[in-house]
C-alpha cells in the first residue's frame, strides 16, 4: 500500500509542478492545490498507514492509529482552503483589472 501511495504522491507532485510552470493563472492555482494534496497524502503515508482502530475511545481497541498526522492534515487543509480561495479571488480581480491571466504579460517592468 505504501508503494502505491508513493506513486500517487509522485504523480500528484509531477502534475502539480507541471501546472504551476504553465502560463495561465487558473492552471497555476489548480497546480498549487494539487501540490498541497500531494503533501497531505505524504504526511498521511509518512506516519504509517492503518496500524489499528480509529483513534476514538469508543472503539475500545487494543491498538490505535496515530491521531497526530490527521490533526496536522486537517489544520493544513483548512489553511490551504483559505489561501486557495484568497488566491482565486485575487486572480479574478487581477484578471478584471489587468485584462489578462497570462503570467508572461504579468511580468512587469523594473523602472516603474
Amino acid at each position: 500500500m505504501e508503494i502505491l501511495m508513493a506513486f500517487a504522491i509522485g504523480i500528484l507532485f509531477m502534475v502539480g509542478t507541471y501546472l504551476i510552470l504553465s502560463r495561465s493563472l487558473l492552471r497555476i492555482i489548480l497546480g498549487t492545490s494539487l501540490l498541497t494534496h500531494a503533501v497531505h497524502l505524504l504526511l498521511l503515508t509518512m506516519s504509517r498507514l492503518k496500524t489499528g482502530a480509529a483513534p476514538l475511545l469508543g472503539e475500545k481497541a487494543g491498538t490505535y492509529v496515530d491521531p497526530l498526522p490527521q490533526a496536522l492534515i486537517l489544520t493544513s487543509i483548512v489553511i490551504s482552503f483559505g489561501v486557495t480561495s484568497f488566491f482565486f479571488v485575487l486572480a479574478y480581480r487581477a484578471y478584471q483589472e489587468l485584462g489578462t491571466d497570462d503570467m508572461e504579460q504579468l511580468r512587469g517592468r523594473d523602472d516603474e
Binding site: G82, S85, V89, Y92
Partner: peptide, 13 residues
C-alpha cells in the same frame, strides 16, 4: 462566518 464570507465575496460579482 469565514466560509460564508469567502463564498459570498466570490459569488457577489
Amino acid at each position: 462566518g469565514v466560509t460564508m464570507t469567502i463564498i459570498l465575496s466570490i459569488g457577489e460579482d
